[in-house]
Design a protein around this nucleic acid. Sequence first.
DNA 1: TGACAGGGGGTGT
DNA 2: ACACCCCCTGTC
Length: 290
Amino acid sequence: MEDFGPWVHIPCVPPFSHAGLRETIDGGQMFRWQAVDVSCWQGIWDRFAARVRIAEGGAIEAAFPDGTAEEALPALLRLLGLDQDYVGAYDSLPWRSDRVLRSAMMQFGGLRVVNQPLGEALLGFICSSTKRIPQIKECMGLLAERFGSPVAGGQALPTWPQLAAVDEADLRGCKLGYRARYVWQTAQFLAGDPGYLTAVEAMPYEGAHAALTRLPGVGAKVADCVLLYGTRSLQPFPVDTWIIQAMAHLYGLHGWPVDHVAQFGRTHFGEFSGLAQQFLFAYARRAGGA
DNA sequence: TGACAGGGGGTGT
DNA sequence: ACACCCCCTGTC
């Protein structure tokens, strides 16, 4: 095992509640973090690794593999959205008129929407369809172990160029099931157009969503997840079965088509609808909306 | 205990 | 509408 350096104190405003930090790190936005104990997680993203735990007053503390903190700390702040204005984002949500949202925001105080490398979010969410979080994590772990590069603290996830050199059969060996073909086809697509994801990052929402949907295995829901968790935008509003249930129950949208619910979410919650989605998702998943 | 449906944070046809 | 691959859960 790797040696980690000293804990670094990171003030956070708005402050994290325990539930808010757990939902941020280990609630299904990312798939490469494991609980060390009830209030400490260890994870890998990009070429970095870290341990994160909750501290007094809603701050957090982080530790990094020896010699990596100088680069990894700013990367962690970016990953967890700690260099963004969440006070303004929280305040702009319609919590004054929406008691459901207000309740979720109190229950999951401090919740952030993460900013992973776009390619990692793409891989994770292509593999997410009809899978539970523990299964997705297992697949990501196998992919990293077998096809990724070593970094201080563990194995990085393979990049898309690395994935393009892997046989579909070997991807299946990572328990991807039918998703192995999607990953393989997308890897080939991106190998033939290396600037594609970089271009997507520079596009406004509509164009970026359309461009991602062109990739095999990427439908509307996965594209929204990739954009929400893989860029700094808080605009995308991913609609999965949990959100369908929650929005039907809480806002009376019974029987609405998925794309209409997504449209409703973006207009009802505004510029930061993705943050609202994350609160409602956490709320519904914890059966708090029933 | 052990086998067997049923179905899951979706996509593509 | 249904299959898709894998694997977990709930039943008998």
